[in-house]
Amino acid sequence: MLELKGIKKTYLLGNSVWGKRKTVEAVKNVSLTLEERVCLGLVGKSGSGKSTLGKIILGLEKPDQGEVWFQGKNLSNLKAKELKELRRNLQVVFQDCYSSVNPRLTIGEIIAEPLRNYERLTSVQEKKKVQELLEIVGLCTEDIHKYPYQFSGGQLQRINIARAIALKPKLIIFDEAVSALDVLVQVQILNLLAQLKEEFHLSYLFISHDLQAVNYIADRLAVMYNGEIVEWLDDMEQLERLEHPVSKKLLSSVLLPYPGHGSDTKMIY
C-alpha cells in the first residue's frame, strides 16, 4: 500500500555565502514497503531520521531523491486534485499533543477540520459525526464545546486521534505519539490504537524510540540508524533474534519494569 523507493533527504546547515555549506544527511537511501492492515514499528535513536521519513511520507518535506508510492500511485507526479484526494487516506498524530491542537478553537472545531476540507456536511451532520468520533476515542460527547486547556495530555492525544481517523484514512503515522504520556495512559492509548486498527482496517507506521511500546503494538519492525534502515524483523515474536549491534543495543537498554532485572547486581558498575 505504501512503498518508499530510495528516499534521500539532505538538510543544509546555516547559510554561509562563502564556500561550501555544511550538510546533514537526515535520510540516506531508505526503501520500505508497508502492506495493508499492518503496523510497522520504526525504532531508532533521536536524530536517526525517523521523523524526517514520516514527514516525507506526509508530504510536509520533499525528498531530494526517491519516490513515495501510495495506493499504487507516485505522489510526486500527481495533479494537485488527485493528490488531495489521495492524501485524505494519510493522516498523522504527533508527539506533542499540546501544540498539535490550536488553543483558540473548541474541540468540535478541531475534530471537524478535516471533515470541512473533504466532506460537505450540514452543521447538524457535522456535530453528530464529531460526537461519534469523540465516543470512539473514549471521550464524552459534551466535550465538544470545551477548549484544549481543559484537557490532560492523554485526553488531548485522544482528540488528535479522533481528528486523524475522521476521514477514515488507510494509513496513520504516529510520530512518538505516546512517548510523552504517563505509563498508564500510554497503555490505554496503545490499546485504543490496536482496537481502532481492527475496527477500521487501518495501517500504522509507528515511529518511536521506545522498544517496549513498539513491541506492544507493531507487527513488523524496522530499526533505523544514521538515516538508514539497518535491520528488519518480520515476526515480532523473535525479538531476541535481532542481530545488528544497533538493534542489540536498543534491546539491551529497555528498562524492564521488574525489580532485579538489571538492577544492582546486573548493573555493570
Partner: peptide
C-alpha cells in the same frame, strides 16, 4: 495494582483489551 498490571515490558500485546474510557486525574 492497576499500575503494575499496565506494565508492558517486552511481552506482546494480549488479545484482551482493557476498557479504554479515559478517566481524568
Amino acid at each position: 495494582r492497576v499500575l503494575l498490571e499496565s506494565r508492558i515490558g517486552l511481552t506482546r500485546r494480549k488479545t484482551k483489551i482493557v476498557k479504554h474510557i479515559s478517566v481524568p486525574p
